[in-house]
């Protein structure tokens, strides 16, 4: 599914969307950067409550095209500018991580392999 469709369907607040047509392959949820680094499949979207610059660093290395900040977390200005320079879409939701993941599942986002 395209990241723009996901953001529209779930009414996410979008900070940066470099390419609307990028597809995501599954999803990972978590706030431990090393867990995401070690286990997320490349190309998946990432739901987290971490909102600092290192989120972009992890997203770049794992080729994560879309980061969704949950529970109303706002990104730091450094995070927004790094996402802009690294072409990572960045969005947020007032919903908590559990609920937004449920909605992503309803949209049909699935992981091919167990993380």
């Amino acid at each position: 599914m395209k990241i723009s469709e996901i953001c529209n369907s779930l009414e996410l607040k979008v900070y940066w969307m470099p390419d609307e047509d990028v597809d995501v392959k599954g999803a990972v949820v978590g706030d431990l950067l090393s867990f995401v680094m070690g286990n997320a499949p490349a190309g998946c979207l990432w739901v987290t409550i971490q909102n600092h610059l290192n989120v972009a660093a992890v997203a770049v290395l794992k080729e994560i095209p879309l980061v969704i900040l949950a529970s109303g977390r706002e990104p730091s200005s450094e995070l927004i500018s790094r996402c802009e320079s690294e072409n990572i879409a960045l969005a947020s939701t007032s919903l908590d991580a559990y609920t937004i993941c449920g909605k992503l599942y309803d949209l049909g986002i699935r992981n091919e392999e167990r993380i």
Partner: peptide, 16 residues
């Protein structure tokens, strides 16, 4: 609190 320090750094290095 920043999401580091989960004790996964060296295990990840070994894994990869």
């Amino acid at each position: 609190e920043m999401g580091f320090g989960a004790g996964m750094g060296l295990p990840n290095i070994k894994k990869y």
